[in-house]
Simulated assay, not measured.
Amino acid sequence: MRSAVWLPLFDELADPRVVADLAVEAEAAGWDGFFVWDQLDWRAPVTAVADPWVCLAAAAAVTNRLALGPMVSPLARRRPTKVARETVSLDRLSDGRLVLGVGVGSDSFAREYSRTGEPVEDRTRAEMLDESLEILRSAWSGGVVRHHGKHHLVDGMTFAPTPVRGHIPVWVAAFPGNLRPLRRAARHDGVFPVNLTSPDQLAEAVARVGALRADPELPYDVAIDLTPGTDPAPWVAAGATWVLTDVDPATLRLDPVRRMVREGPAS
């Protein structure tokens, strides 16, 4: 099992310098990863929100070992060609430590999609996500990208440089009972099952993804979030390979977060 700090970039944490300092402390305390939320807005009492890519770049520049990335980024609201540039730049800045968490996203938390003219229908957003992932895979390869889709067009572009290791791991957020996101996750490098209620539910999701994968023998990550202090052992036994800290954004404060980071991961 590997452990990661996972933080909403809200209020007292809505400052790239603060995030970078926390990443340094996380690396010193023995954490394996440092992941951040990707939101434009959030409901009260949150008032301030930082950009994940800027914060991750700040964290990458001052650390050497931590895996890092957005967890998760709703790609449907982002231009995939821009994300191709951003991800490779961050991957190279971090010397190949980027993990890209992706998902369909939801308008229910802060109406950040409907209030900015973004599509809110799950089906549409899922289509856009799948097209974006196809474009990213092609762009990262260094070959010519030709994509004429329903939502995106890339007509004969080549993206250089390429990722440090030729590939950026993609983890896909999925509700365990929803087959389509699990199929999407099975095509990539990891799954982040959300809203889990028990290790048994995780074990079922892991089994379903495993049955859908083209080659179940290849390395594959299963990330979950747990409240700090929760015993991870039953979840690891159910298939979790990464455990992320579940921090409540409504009560988020810098000092308790710093104490949690300094205490290090659960053994």
Rank of each mutant, 00 (worst) to 15 (best):
residue 209 V to G: 02
residue 192 F to L: 15
residue 202 L to N: 01
residue 148 H to W: 00
residue 130 D to A: 13
residue 190 G to N: 07
residue 157 M to I: 10
residue 148 H to V: 08
residue 188 H to T: 09
residue 154 V to Y: 00
residue 136 L to I: 12
residue 205 A to H: 02
residue 150 K to W: 02
residue 138 S to H: 12
residue 137 R to V: 14
residue 143 G to K: 04
residue 143 G to M: 09
residue 209 V to S: 03
residue 133 L to F: 04
residue 176 P to W: 01
residue 135 I to N: 04
residue 187 R to H: 12
residue 212 L to V: 10
residue 195 N to W: 09
residue 147 H to Y: 11
residue 172 V to L: 04
residue 149 G to A: 06
residue 200 D to M: 00
residue 143 G to A: 13
residue 155 D to Q: 01
residue 126 A to P: 08
residue 145 V to T: 12
residue 146 R to L: 14
residue 199 P to R: 00
residue 182 L to H: 08
residue 132 S to A: 15
residue 211 A to R: 12
residue 154 V to R: 00
residue 198 S to P: 05
residue 161 P to V: 07
residue 159 F to N: 05
residue 139 A to E: 14
residue 187 R to C: 12
residue 145 V to I: 13
residue 132 S to R: 02
residue 191 V to A: 08
residue 160 A to D: 13
residue 178 N to A: 15
residue 147 H to C: 06
residue 126 A to Q: 10
residue 129 L to N: 06
residue 171 W to Y: 14
residue 169 P to D: 10
residue 210 G to C: 08
residue 124 T to M: 11
residue 206 V to Y: 02
residue 180 R to E: 15
residue 199 P to H: 00
residue 193 P to T: 09
residue 125 R to E: 11
residue 153 L to K: 00
residue 145 V to E: 09
residue 188 H to C: 11
residue 183 R to H: 14
residue 186 A to M: 06
residue 166 G to F: 03
residue 178 N to H: 13
residue 212 L to R: 04
residue 163 P to M: 06
residue 161 P to R: 02
residue 199 P to G: 02
residue 167 H to G: 09
residue 206 V to I: 07
residue 155 D to R: 00
residue 149 G to L: 03
residue 172 V to I: 05
residue 164 V to I: 11
residue 153 L to E: 11
residue 173 A to K: 00
residue 129 L to A: 04
residue 179 L to C: 06
residue 168 I to P: 10
residue 134 E to M: 04
residue 149 G to V: 05
residue 168 I to L: 13
residue 181 P to L: 12
residue 203 A to S: 06
residue 129 L to Q: 05
residue 172 V to E: 02
residue 183 R to M: 15
residue 165 R to E: 15
residue 144 V to R: 14
residue 212 L to A: 09
residue 132 S to D: 13
residue 162 T to H: 08
residue 179 L to R: 13
residue 185 A to M: 07
residue 201 Q to T: 01
residue 144 V to F: 02
residue 163 P to Y: 03
residue 179 L to M: 10
residue 209 V to L: 07
residue 210 G to N: 11
residue 203 A to H: 01
residue 195 N to V: 08
residue 134 E to S: 15
residue 132 S to M: 09
residue 134 E to P: 03
residue 191 V to S: 04
residue 204 E to S: 09
residue 197 T to G: 15
residue 202 L to A: 02
residue 199 P to T: 01
residue 162 T to C: 12
residue 179 L to H: 03
residue 209 V to P: 04
residue 146 R to C: 14
residue 141 S to K: 07
residue 147 H to F: 14
residue 158 T to N: 03
residue 130 D to E: 15
residue 206 V to L: 09
residue 210 G to V: 07
residue 137 R to P: 13
residue 135 I to P: 08
residue 192 F to C: 07
residue 132 S to F: 06
residue 196 L to Q: 03
residue 209 V to K: 01
residue 208 R to W: 02
residue 175 F to H: 10
residue 153 L to M: 05
residue 208 R to M: 13
residue 156 G to S: 07
residue 141 S to T: 09
residue 156 G to V: 03
residue 144 V to I: 14
residue 212 L to I: 07
residue 158 T to M: 10
residue 173 A to W: 01
residue 153 L to N: 00
residue 183 R to I: 13
residue 157 M to K: 01
residue 165 R to A: 15
residue 171 W to R: 02
residue 162 T to K: 07
residue 140 W to I: 13
residue 125 R to G: 11
residue 157 M to P: 05
residue 136 L to W: 05
residue 204 E to F: 00
residue 211 A to T: 08
residue 146 R to V: 15
residue 197 T to M: 04
residue 172 V to Q: 03
residue 192 F to M: 14
residue 181 P to A: 14
residue 177 G to T: 11
residue 194 V to Y: 01
